[in-house]
Design a protein around this nucleic acid. Structure first.
Ligand SMILES: Nc1nc2c(ncn2[C@H]2C[C@H](O)[C@@H](COP(=O)(O)OP(=O)(O)OP(=O)(O)O)O2)c(=O)[nH]1
Ligand SMILES: [Mg+2]
Length: 837
DNA sequence: ATGGGGTTT
DNA sequence: AAACCCC
């Protein structure tokens, strides 16, 4: 393994795990790869007490659960998007809150969910970026979790019985490659490996995942991992207990720690993300022990240490599952600590909580949690919301909802499912206590804060959304939203809202007919993807090859093999439609589609195209326009300066930014950064990207100070009205203006829009931009195209894709030289976050 | 609080 | 539709 040299304890090469470490987190933090590996000899020091067959608590069912938690998630994504932010104390801002911050900022006293004012008091140099738009976080989250395709159609299309997105898939390959290559011969296809790794993934929020590795561990245990009495594990062991190589439970958990380390390594290698992991026998314990060592470390919990972990908690509410309401009930019973909870008779708990919940939390207090991993699969709802200081007119509410619609509809469209139900939720301004304050005492006031009304979505609107016809769908949907709104608010009386949420749920798969209508669309839908680009290059290069059917066959094979790749967080399993159906449909409709026209498209040229290509263009048109709109509104415009600069960096520079740290590290640097910095000098198992890493080593952080954008603090924009409520702090405002790193929020919240009542995003980019930047570019100002690209075909591509192709051609003079599929797979995870959209 | 997301009642 | 829960 790629164990770091353990210079802390050179005399114990075989026993370098961390159960006996007495160093603090700051000192003995782990590398992004996998902490320190423990390799323990049977004859070594005494194992954990009470282990082996004599274990007191026989509750073990052999489960091994891993809980993953990404480090300072939003902040990490922002640092990937702009590596310069890595070096500075960074906070991610939503309205007046710093929802999270990087560990540089945490060392300076900034915490999660701190007010901006408080955060700046503790750290005047704090750099803030706006995190109100969750798109990038959601997309990264989707890549981490992967998708869980279940559709029969996908299996029919791909031949895969199960398909799994790459993080887990690659981890599996990683796991099995060294051990099974020769043992199981070549008969085991990738497919088989996939099936052997049957861990289901359950999401919790955007940045946490549970995975049940019991089965994987079982196969490992029978293989040669426990050979000769050596027990190998990775990372910390909670309470520094030594795993007992003779204890089957310890062995299984130790193997779980190996799996966790490999998966974390994959997360870092492929997505550039650092994370923590907890390994234990159930979800509760895995999650609790996960945070024992942060950031970028993992901790293994042995059954003997469960009590110590639980009694280390200060309050019952620190048990996941005991929330605000339950906490208050416990408080009424005089239960304020773990000790009192564990001592409290069950009957007493039942009096306040009911027997079921009483039982549940009693179990939790003992570390018992039988709940299974529930594979999350596709989201059950898609919503967008906005909060504001005041919304007190019908018109204002309507406008808010229209803006919310404009953000959520493209997401719905990408999802591909039909929304059966819409819901509007409001929050009224309330003189009572906030939820946080209410947690203290008064329990009658705070509850009725949100109200909602829902209704079915008309099928016509469903179809329009699915087809990307947002402009058509918006009006009728808005009418519906207003009806729901009127059910909630009597507009003849004064009202005062502070939040509106629009949620689409009861999402169902489109009918077969809908599927075939969307299938070609899917393949060409996105413009910001490497493999997509590659597909398109093949698509347009070589006129001789330009028979629709053959091209589509290529697309099919590419998309199948590359099913791991995913566009804009679009679930893999939505690529389920069979190409066969798509082609059939294209043929059937060729005649009628020829009659249709596309704006800005030369009809003569259009008619010369093969009929199925015509069909595709027609099908693609509204969708591309809609996508363009959404990206212009939410991304390109406010980020333009920043994004352009970032794009100048090469891929290796980006990896540099996310893995290596520049010289400005202080002695205060946390273990994460220290370990990460060591990475280049340790033997890394990088195969495909080795050259890039070498480049990185030679020129770390080449992009420093490429971005010089003096900006205005967000505090000058959106938040002026919030500031009226908070104790003002103009000095921090002034400090903020000195900052040269807030290019995104600064651009976004420029002074022109500061009075737009908290929501300036959509007004930043007027719809007319869509008209100016039409989907189909007719101009010939592309300059010279590569020889093997048919200009007539090129000009039919959506502008965004044209630009992407042009950029890539500029970057690499060899037109047809595309990276290997495998290389594309490796890089796309990070790559896509730096592409213009 | 904020901007999401989930399940149960 | 609200009330819980989670991040
Ligand atoms: N708006 C909002 N966002 C939240 C809230 N809780 C968590 N988040 C977001 C911001 C976090 O980056 C992300 C993950 O939450 P975590 O609790 O895991 O914190 P984070 O990953 O930032 O830091 P960590 O290193 O895990 O301690 O979810 C919340 O109450 N409101
Ligand atoms: Mg986290």
């Amino acid at each position: 393994m790629d164990v770091e040299s353990d210079d802390r304890d050179p005399g114990r090469a075989l026993c370098s795990g961390q159960w006996d470490s007495d160093l603090s987190d700051e000192d003995d933090g782990q590398s992004w790869r996998c902490d320190v590996t423990g390799l323990r000899d049977v004859t070594d020091t005494a194992p954990a007490q009470g282990s082996s067959a004599h274990r007191q608590c026989p509750l073990s069912d052999g489960s091994v659960i891993v809980h993953f938690d990404l480090d300072c998630f939003y902040a990490q994504v922002e640092m990937l998007r702009n590596p310069e932010l890595r070096n500075v104390p960074l906070g991610v801002q939503q309205k007046y809150l710093v929802v999270t911050c990087n560990y540089v900022a945490r060392r300076m006293g900034v915490n999660k969910l701190m007010t901006v004012t408080a955060a700046r008091e503790r750290c005047p140099r704090l750099v803030l970026v706006s995190g109100e738009d969750l798109t990038h976080y959601r997309e990264m989250s989707d890549q981490v979790t992967g998708e869980q395709p279940k559709s029969l159609e996908i299996m029919a299309c791909t031949g895969f019985e199960t398909t799994r997105a790459f993080p887990m898939e690659e981890a599996l390959g990683f796991i099995h490659q060294p051990t099974t290559n020769k043992q199981t011969q070549g008969n085991s296809t990738n497919n088989e490996l996939l099936r052997r790794f049957s861990g289901a993934v359950e999401r919790l929020g955007f940045d946490e995942n549970f995975i049940d590795v019991s089965d994987t561990v079982r196969t490992w245990t029978t293989e040669k991992f426990t050979s000769e009495g050596m027990l190998s594990f990775e990372g910390h062991v909670y309470d520094h207990k030594a795993p007992d190589p003779l204890d089957p439970v310890h062995i299984r958990l130790a193997l779980g720690s190996k799996i966790a380390a490999m998966m974390r390594e994959q997360l870092h290698r492929q997505l550039g993300l650092t994370s923590c992991a907890g390994i234990a026998e159930n979800k509760l314990l895995a999650k609790l022990v996960c945070s024992a060592h942060k950031p970028n470390q993992q901790t293994l919990l042995l059954p003997e240490s469960v009590d110590k972990l639980l009694t280390s908690l200060e309050r019952p509410s620190q048990l996941p599952g005991i929330g605000q309401s339950t906490s208050m009930k416990l408080k009424r019973l005089g239960v304020n600590s773990m000790d009192t909870l564990r001592a409290c008779p069950l009957e007493k708990l039942e009096s306040e909580l009911g027997s079921e919940q009483a039982n549940t939390i009693k179990n939790l207090s003992r570390g018992v949690d039988p709940s299974p991993i529930n594979p999350s699969g596709l989201p059950q709802s898609l919503s967008d919301e906005d909060s504001f200081k005041n919304c007190s007119s019908e018109e204002a509410a309507k406008q808010k909802m229209e803006e919310l619609l404009k953000k959520v509809l493209p997401r719905l469209h990408k999802d591909g499912r039909l929304p059966g139900t819409v819901r509007v939720t409001i929050r009224r301004a309330f003189s009572g206590k906030s939820q946080r304050d209410a947690a203290g005492l008064n329990d009658t006031m705070h509850c009725l804060r949100r109200e909602s009304r829902q209704c079915p979505v008309p099928t016509a609107a469903q179809r329009q959304v699915q087809q990307g016809d947002f402009l058509q769908a918006t009006r009728p949907l808005l009418v519906i939203l207003m009806k729901l709104f009127h059910k909630l608010v009597d507009v003849t009386k004064p009202f005062h809202l502070t939040l509106i949420n629009v949620c689409f749920c009861k999402l169902t798969r489109p009918s077969n007919k809908d599927i075939t209508e969307r299938s070609i669309d899917d393949l060409l839908a996105s413009s910001s993807h490497l493999s997509q680009s590659k597909m398109l290059k093949r698509f347009i290069s070589g006129n001789d090859d330009f028979e629709g059917r053959r091209t589509f066959e290529e697309l099919k094979s590419l998309s199948t093999k590359d099913s791991v790749s995913n566009v804009e967080g679009q679930p893999t399993r939505k690529r389920q439609r069979t190409m066969h159906d798509a082609l059939k449909r294209a043929e059937c409709q060729a005649t009628s589609s020829s009659q249709a026209t596309v704006q800005n498209v030369d009809r003569e040229v259009f008619l010369q195209l093969p009929v199925d290509i015509q069909e595709e263009i027609l099908a693609n048109c509204p969708r591309e326009q809609a996508c363009l709109l959404s990206t212009l509104v939410s991304s390109t415009e406010p980020h333009s300066v920043h994004q352009v600069e970032v794009e100048k960096q090469k891929f290796s520079d980006r990896l540099t930014g996310c893995t290596a740290l520049p010289e400005c590290l202080t002695t205060e640097a946390p273990c994460m950064e220290q370990e990460v910095r060591q990475e280049p000098v340790s033997p890394i198992k990088i195969v495909l990207e080795e050259d890039r890493f070498l480049t990185k080593h030679n020129s770390p952080c080449t992009s420093t100070s490429e971005i010089v954008t003096t900006t205005i603090s967000p505090l000058h924009g959106d938040f002026t009205e919030w500031q009226d409520e908070e104790p003002d702090n103009r000095l921090t405002d002034l400090d903020a203006t000195k900052n040269t790193h807030i290019s995104r929020s600064g651009t976004r919240f420029s002074s022109d829009e500061r009075n737009a009542d908290f929501d300036l995003r959509t007004s930043t980019t007027p719809n007319t931009l869509l008209d100016q930047k039409s989907d189909f570019t007719c101009s010939s100002d592309h300059g010279s195209l590569p020889n093997d690209v048919d200009p007539q075909v090129f000009r039919f591509l959506p502008a965004a894709i044209q630009n992407e192709l042009l950029a890539s051609w500029r970057a690499t003079p060899h037109v047809c030289e595309t990276p290997s599929l495998k290389a594309a797979k490796q890089s796309q995870g990070i790559e896509r976050y730096f592409k213009k959209k």
